[in-house]
């Protein structure tokens, strides 16, 4: 299973994901800008990514805690998500994410 990550450093990487951990936990060792200061509680916004628009519907809907956090992000886009709230499932094979600019 592979997802594609466009890092803050303009790199494109194909990343093997195999577990059911959140994408935040799986992406943060790559050091491409997904950090997760709050450890996956959806309260810090440091794992902000955008999802390729045509893949949006593959993801579980945004819950109210993620929504509350996203609302506070000045650079939120219509396709913004928190990577800590995306649990990897086989249906997400080929998912393409772009790490949001950190302000």
């Amino acid at each position: 299973m592979t997802i594609v990550v466009h890092g803050r450093d303009q790199t494109r990487r194909e990343v093997d994901v195999n577990t059911r951990d959140s994408l935040m936990l799986q992406l943060r060792p790559l050091k491409v800008g997904v950090i997760g200061v709050c450890g996956g509680n959806a309260v810090c916004g440091t794992c902000h990514v955008t999802v390729r628009p045509d893949q949006w519907d593959l993801l579980e809907p945004i819950d109210e805690y993620e929504e509350e956090m996203l609302e506070t992000l000045p650079d939120r886009q219509p396709n913004s998500r928190l990577a800590c709230q995306i649990v990897y499932t086989p249906a997400l094979d080929g998912l393409e994410l772009t790490v949001a600019t950190r302000i």
Partner: peptide
């Protein structure tokens, strides 16, 4: 800087200072 990682990811080396 943010403090939550100071007792966790920073001590174990998961985070560098610039991360938080």
């Amino acid at each position: 800087y943010d403090r939550p990682p100071l007792s966790k990811e920073f001590l174990t080396g998961v985070f560098d200072e610039d991360d938080f």
